[in-house]
Write a protein that binds this DNA or RNA. Sequence first.
DNA 1: TGACAAATAAGAGCTAATCCTATTTAGTAG
DNA 2: CTACTAAATAGGATTAGCTCTTATTTGTCA
Lengths: 153, 153
Amino acid sequence: MREVMKKKDIEVKFRVFEDRCRQSGLKVTPQRVAVYKALIGTDLHPTAEEVHRMVKQDIHSISLDTVNRTLLTLAEIGAAFQVEGTGQRRRFDGDLENHQHFRCIKCGKIVDFHHKPFDNIDIPAQLHGQFQVMRKTVYLEGLCQTCSAVSSS
Amino acid sequence: MREVMKKKDIEVKFRVFEDRCRQSGLKVTPQRVAVYKALIGTDLHPTAEEVHRMVKQDIHSISLDTVNRTLLTLAEIGAAFQVEGTGQRRRFDGDLENHQHFRCIKCGKIVDFHHKPFDNIDIPAQLHGQFQVMRKTVYLEGLCQTCSAVSSS
DNA sequence: TGACAAATAAGAGCTAATCCTATTTAGTAG
DNA sequence: CTACTAAATAGGATTAGCTCTTATTTGTCA
Ligand SMILES: [Mn+2]
Ligand SMILES: [Mn+2]
Ligand SMILES: [Zn+2]
Ligand SMILES: [Zn+2]
């Protein structure tokens, strides 16, 4: 899904991110940047704890609370989002490109895929005026190849 | 969304439910029936705690653990399911008819709607063989009318 | 009716997330 | 560059939503 990112792309991402922070009146702290960097550097849709583990390598003293808070803040300002699903721990995604998710109900793995027709499904007319739709998601659940093989054996 | 249910329909539902239990080797206990009854009697997509509160009116001594366990069991045997979303508390749905959900990100309300074209979206070819898709969901998020009015004022 | 596996109640335990508060820091004005 | 202030953070305490454990009860079936 995610191609290797060029240095230029990363620079652009960071400029966009800092703009977003300033626009929202948020300080650009090392912690915030580190969390953002960790999140856009993976497609594993990590939990707060997993992000915390990653970020600790850069900022040894960063607290889990800060990571949690920052991830929610990123979602608020539109620099990331929470992955939909029925799981128990919140999982985050820093990939703002149009894409969809498949989640394995056994191992919990979340896999990106992109099916263009899913990008702009039209909201049924009956909802217009009733709701202000801000996010549309097509979401698949089932068994991944590994788990499927195990359970059928 | 949900029409008033006729007595006959309810009888049928219960017969189907008991069949499902027997088929899965599950006992038909008063607790199990009460939880099921509470769940199909609402379209509010309640949490375990909310179901517990409802069921307590019938079975005063029922424990929250039993409700939790039962709701998960119902989902396992296909008599109910967990609602998709990014919220923190699990929410359940006893309506097995094809339908979709809108969730208000402010007040957490989950509203049913039904848009036929969403019922059988086709799985992209790239996923065939890779995943065993067991559930396909179209899920909308945003602000409900009430919350939208409040935040724009 | 009796035997037994399954289910339950009650409470302990666990863990993700949130709250609290003293300290630090980014942004800014002088 | 320096001083100020509101925002952010670290670390520990707390909360909340489950999940587990165990003794007791109860459907189910022979
Ligand atoms: Mn993704
Ligand atoms: Mn529903
Ligand atoms: Zn899997
Ligand atoms: Zn609302």
